[in-house]
Simulated assay, not measured.
Amino acid sequence: MQWFRNFLPDTNVSLSDRGLAYGDGLFETLSVLHGDLVNLAIHQTRLKRGCNRLNFAVEDHLWQKIWSFVGQKAQEYPDSGLKIILTRGSGGRGYLPPDTSNFEFILGVFEKPNYAALHQVGVSLTTSPIDASINRSLAGLKHLNRLENVMAKSCLPASYYEAVLVDANGFIIECIQSNLFWFYKGRLRTAALMTSGVQGSLRSRILADFDGCIDIGRYALEDLMLADEIFVCNAMSQIMPVVRFDDKTFPIGPMTKQLMEKINPI
């Protein structure tokens, strides 16, 4: 993985950086396909929304410089993955942030995994013993505080691709590093993310582009077991069909295949 810090090749971060100390920052993971940044506008919107929520007063000239640099690296590494990290930088006293932030922009370039084989055969899910945290203030954001995902990933059995996280009330939120969708009687369903979870870029794309009926709500694991088809998605794996959830098997059905043909890059 190659790293850039504040637009220069660099692997050094200040020990006083608030992103390191408090997770005071945001990140985005983008897929580059033939030099194009996939779903760029969705990533830009989410990152700006996160900055507004965290009171990151990023000026327009810095945004322009960031996206110009990201676009340049996409051309240099035309079939890669890019990870953007934006922290508040150093300063402040304890949790209290400084009056004026000195933002740290970090960009990582990495080789994308090849998911083509898994797209053909599907993957398996289980239920994670780790709960998704409930926090309305941070819900939807891709912030740097990801300890529950780290804990869930560390206890994921090797035979499973992903695990479903529920909140303390037993409602489905998402998977460890993917959003979760399923079809039930022809309707597309996914969890509402008003109190937990990450509003993934591909989740936003699917909700905008799907031309059928969509139900966004609070669902229990029992509802997922009634599904006709299941898939998970994120920016890297795209739409990934699920063929097993614990002991129950599911087909890679026609509606999932149709969405994959429409959204997954060739």
Rank of each mutant, 00 (worst) to 15 (best):
W3D: 03
F4H: 14
R5S: 13
R5H: 14
L8I: 12
L8H: 15
T11R: 14
S14R: 09
S14C: 10
S14N: 09
S16E: 15
D17V: 03
G19V: 09
G19L: 05
A21Y: 00
G23T: 11
G23D: 05
D24A: 04
F27A: 06
T29M: 04
L30A: 12
S31L: 13
G35W: 11
A41S: 11
Q44K: 11
T45F: 01
K48E: 12
R49P: 00
C51W: 11
R53S: 10
R53E: 05
L54F: 15
N55W: 01
F56V: 15
A57Y: 06
E59C: 13
W63D: 13
F69I: 11
F69K: 14
Q72P: 04
Q72S: 15
K73T: 02
Q75D: 07
P78W: 14
D79R: 08
S80E: 03
G81M: 04
I84K: 10
T87P: 03
R88V: 05
G89R: 00
G92T: 14
G92L: 05
G92Q: 10
R93L: 07
G94N: 11
P97F: 01
T100N: 06
T100Q: 15
F105I: 13
I106G: 05
L107I: 11
G108N: 14
V109R: 09
F110K: 14
F110G: 03
K112Q: 15
P113D: 01
A117D: 13
G122T: 01
T126K: 02
P129W: 01
P129G: 09
I130T: 03
I130D: 02
S133H: 02
R136H: 03
S137Y: 13
A139P: 05
G140P: 11
K142N: 09
R146S: 03
R146M: 03
L147P: 07
E148Q: 10
E148Y: 10
N149M: 07
Y160D: 14
Y160H: 12
E162R: 01
A163D: 04
N169E: 02
C175W: 00
S178Y: 00
N179R: 01
L180W: 00
W182P: 00
A192P: 06
L193C: 02
M194W: 03
S196W: 00
G197E: 04
Q199I: 03
L202K: 05
L202S: 02
S204N: 12
F210C: 06
D211P: 00
C213S: 15
R218E: 10
R218G: 09
R218S: 07
A220G: 12
E222F: 11
D223I: 10
L224D: 07
L224N: 01
A227I: 04
A227N: 08
E229C: 12
E229Y: 07
F231K: 03
A235M: 04
V243K: 06
D247W: 12
K248N: 04
K248L: 12
I252P: 12
I252F: 14
M255Q: 15
K257V: 05
L259Y: 08
E261I: 09
K262Q: 09
I263N: 02
N264Y: 04
